[in-house]
């Protein structure tokens, strides 16, 4: 299978699989991979049994920290993270949203201080019944994860 082939091709690094196709580049951005000089393979619009169409990102020779991969939970909560060492999956990492997100999300409120002054954005993650929302520490406005704009 194509997927196995790709995973097998990675010797050491991180594989992010089962990303919804329309979220692949958001995941790429949230992990700040534009600035990463390692080998990166991106596959998108791949066939998947579990979802309509999926994407996959493989970063070679880099083991993403939990704090980094947790950001993915915001935009692709069902993505699968595997850490590969010597061609083997050494860790299947569950996605859990961090309690607080610093400088990741932009506040959608045009009157918020963070959009006018050099102030780092801080959002706290609020867990409701079956829903999550983000609350701006400054203007105290809440937003849904699907409305999130990244910084």
């Amino acid at each position: 299978m194509e997927k196995e082939l790709k995973v097998a091709a990675l010797r050491n690094g991180t594989v992010i699989d089962h990303i919804p196709s329309d979220k692949v580049f958001k995941v790429f951005a949230i992990l700040n991979l534009e600035k990463c000089t390692n080998q990166i393979t991106i596959g998108n619009n791949l066939e998947s049994k579990r979802m309509q169409s999926k994407g996959i990102i493989k970063v070679s020779e880099r083991f993403l920290e939990e704090a980094e991969t947790n950001k993915i939970a915001l935009i692709a909560p069902n993505a699968k993270i595997n850490i590969i060492k010597d061609y083997e999956v050494t860790e299947k990492r569950p996605l859990t949203l961090p309690k607080e997100m610093r400088e990741i999300v932009q506040c959608p409120n045009p009157s918020c201080i963070t959009n006018h002054q050099p102030v780092a954005t801080v959002f706290s993650v609020q867990n409701g019944d079956n829903t999550i929302s983000l609350k701006c520490r400054y203007c105290e406005k809440e937003l849904k994860p699907e409305d999130v704009k990244l910084k």
Partner: peptide, 8 residues
């Protein structure tokens, strides 16, 4: 006039 100014 900006929201969140006091928290900051």
């Amino acid at each position: 006039y900006l929201e969140g100014a006091a928290r900051y």
